[in-house]
Simulated scan of single mutants.
Amino acid sequence: MALRHSTLVDSLSEAASIKQNNRVYDLRADGADVITLSLGEAFFDIPTPSFDELGPAAHHYSHSRGVPLLRQKLAKYHEEGSGTPVDPDREIMITAGSKAAVFMALTALVEPGDEVIVPEPLWVSYPDQVRLCRGIPVTVPWGGTVEDIAARVTPRTRAVVINNPHNPTGRRLTAAELRRLHELADEHGLALIADEVYSEFVPDHEPFVSTGAFDPDREHTVICNSMSKNFGISGWRVGYLIAGEGLIEQVTKLQQHLVTCAPTILCQYLAENFEAVLASTRPQIHAMVERRGRVAAALAARGVECLPGDSTFYLFASLGRSSLGSTEFAEELLSRYRVSVVAGAAYGASCEGFIRVSIGAEPEDRLLRGVRAICDLIDETSTGAVR
Rank of each mutant, 00 (worst) to 15 (best):
S326R: 04
A185F: 07
E364M: 10
W236H: 14
I223F: 08
K253R: 15
S50V: 15
D89C: 00
A300I: 04
G232E: 09
Y240C: 14
P165W: 06
S98F: 10
T84F: 02
P363L: 00
H63R: 15
P137N: 03
L254P: 14
F313C: 07
L258H: 12
R336F: 06
V110E: 05
A175I: 05
R90Y: 10
S199W: 00
S382L: 07
A176F: 01
R336E: 09
A101E: 12
T264L: 04
E79Q: 02
N225F: 13
D379Q: 10
A151R: 15
V304Y: 00
L241M: 13
I355A: 05
P137R: 02
D26L: 14
Q256P: 00
A301F: 00
A330P: 00
A75F: 04
L324A: 05
W123V: 03
A29N: 12
E80R: 04
T221W: 00
V277Y: 13
H286G: 07
G212T: 04
G348N: 01
G303F: 04
L299M: 11
P363G: 03
L39D: 14
E120N: 00
I248E: 06
R294Y: 08
K19P: 07
A191C: 01
E249D: 15
G244I: 12
G81P: 03
V138W: 02
E183G: 11
L54F: 08
